[in-house]
């Protein structure tokens, strides 16, 4: 049957695409909290950009588009929270450089930023999954 043969082709090609996409994780290449924050933030943005490219021609079925839209909205909200956490850490670092007694505030801001990176990491994976197959 044509359908069964093509289902097998589908599965094989989807696996190739998944392995190609899963190989790169910018967060794992970072060392400092700020580097991890940029890696997570940039990965979220790259994912949302790719979803936007998929949505732009309006050729995917509406249910697939709706799922992609929902994932991109969640990712954008998380990215915005991450940017706020980074800005707080930057402010705390500037205050610490001017007044060493604010070390506690800087530590708290960096812990908050690190916590955001931990929350963002699985969302980046979700984004990649959504783009790979929208299954």
């Amino acid at each position: 049957m044509v359908s069964r043969a093509f289902a097998q082709v589908w599965i094989a090609l989807a696996l190739v695409a998944i392995s190609a996409c899963a190989a790169f994780n910018p967060i794992s290449r970072a060392e400092t909290v700020e580097q991890k924050a940029l890696a997570a933030y940039g990965s979220l943005v790259i994912g949302v950009e790719q979803i936007a490219e998929l949505l732009r021609p309006d050729t995917l079925p509406d249910d697939v588009q709706s799922r992609l839209i929902a994932v991109s909205e969640r990712s954008a909200a998380l990215a915005t929270a991450g940017l706020a956490a980074y800005n707080q850490a930057q402010t705390a670092r500037a205050q610490f450089e001017a007044d060493a007694s604010t070390q506690g505030r800087l530590n708290a801001a960096l812990i908050n930023l690190d916590s955001w990176v931990t929350r963002a990491d699985p969302v980046v994976d979700d984004l990649k999954s959504a783009i790979r197959g929208a299954q």
Binding site: A20, F24, N25, I46, G47, E53, L60, R132
Partner: peptide, 18 residues
Amino acid sequence: QLIQGGRKTAEALKEFAE
């Protein structure tokens, strides 16, 4: 369309990871 999107994402993430 989806595979092309996935491949573009992989390329963009690879570049960014570097």
